[in-house]
Amino acid sequence: MLETTLATPDIQLPPTQAQLPFDDGIPMESARHKAQMDLLINGLIPWLEQREDGYVGGNMFVYYSLAQVRNKDFKGPDFFAVLGVPKGERRSWVVWEEEKAPDVVIELLSDSTAAVDKNEKKLIYQNQMRVPEYFWYDPFNPDNFAGFAIQQSEYQPIAANTQNQLVSKSLGLALQLWQGNYQGIDATWLRWANLRGEVLPTPEEKQNQRAEQERQRAEQERQRAEQERQRADQAESQLLQTARNLLKTGMTVEQVTKLTGLSASAIEK
């Protein structure tokens, strides 16, 4: 009887994130661009900690097609967020592994990238990656801020609400401008916020808030203790005055101690 051996089909599996490049070694355009990316990411971290799912990343490669891999078109968005996926570290975001593209993408504009971000990348996010919501912001020009949501296969502008926010329906949050200091830079920053207009604090801000609350509680306790001490001093003073008045009526020290509860030494003083 002849033995037959089935040929193993030559199937080439798509590369995984462990096999794909994840860093082009090119720094962001400026320290402010890097700080802005950090602020967007760090603002979502405490919010995501309350969920069982979700991932947020920035300035890392997002792979959406094998053609992109062959063309070595690796550059990824400055910020992206994805819900409905397991938590955990990623070297890069590989759509065919995760079975999902990002829900939200934000590009930080600069003179050298604005044209690509507003045209070529916008079309990639719209037509190839099908990212539901796309925003751009120029950290050095706060007026250059816009958002788009896919409607009938095309991006349509997101109108600002009454809080002057651009709402992300994917996350149930909003993006708004915030004037302040972050990482030592005074600027107008793009921040995540709830729909009441309250910005989402970063882990550092939450820690500072807890420290401030503890300081306020300690100060309140100190003030309460001081008030109690003052009340006790006032009550003792009034009692001593009563004792002096009783002594003036001719009562003995022993009689006054019984009436007031003060010690003889205190009365004699």
Rank of each mutant, 00 (worst) to 15 (best):
Q12H: 14
Q12E: 14
L13E: 14
P14F: 05
P15L: 15
P15S: 05
Q17W: 03
L20R: 05
P21I: 11
P21K: 10
P21E: 09
F22N: 15
D23A: 14
D24C: 01
G25H: 05
I26L: 09
P27K: 08
P27E: 09
E29W: 06
E29S: 15
S30Q: 04
S30A: 07
R32H: 05
Q36S: 04
Q36G: 00
M37Q: 15
D38Y: 12
L39R: 12
L40Y: 11
L40K: 07
I41M: 13
I41H: 02
N42V: 00
G43E: 08
G43T: 09
L44M: 02
L44F: 04
L44N: 00
I45K: 04
W47V: 02
W47L: 06
E49H: 07
Q50K: 14
E52S: 15
D53K: 06
G54F: 01
Y55M: 02
V56Q: 03
G57V: 03
M60V: 15
V62F: 03
Y63W: 12
Y63S: 06
S65Q: 04
S65N: 05
L66G: 04
L66I: 13
A67D: 15
Q68D: 07
Q68L: 06
V69D: 02
K72V: 00
K72P: 00
D73A: 13
F74P: 01
F74R: 08
G76P: 02
G76R: 00
G76I: 02
D78E: 08
A81F: 07
V82H: 01
V82I: 14
V82K: 02
L83S: 04
L83H: 03
L83V: 08
V85P: 02
V85L: 03
V85H: 02
G88S: 08
G88Q: 10
G88D: 10
E89P: 03
E89Y: 14
R90T: 08
W96G: 09
E97M: 03
E97F: 01
E98V: 13
E99T: 01
E99H: 11
E99Q: 14
K100H: 11
K100Q: 13
P102H: 11
D103M: 03
D103G: 10
D103H: 05
D103I: 06
V104C: 01
I106Y: 04
I106H: 01
E107Q: 09
E107W: 13
E107R: 07
L108I: 08
S110P: 06
S112H: 11
S112V: 07
T113H: 00
A114Y: 02
A114W: 08
A114H: 04
A115H: 14
V116M: 06
V116S: 05
D117T: 06
K122F: 15
L123M: 13
I124M: 08
Y125S: 05
Y125P: 07
Q126T: 11
N127E: 15
M129E: 10
R130Y: 03
R130E: 09
R130S: 05
P132W: 06
P132A: 07
P132R: 05
E133T: 12
E133R: 11
E133C: 10
E133H: 12
W136Q: 02
Y137D: 01
Y137V: 04
D138M: 01
P139F: 07
P142R: 13
P142V: 10
P142Q: 13
D143M: 08
N144T: 14
N144M: 10
A146M: 09
A146R: 12
G147H: 11
F148H: 14
A149E: 11
A149G: 03
I150H: 03
I150T: 04
Q152V: 11
S153W: 05
E154M: 09
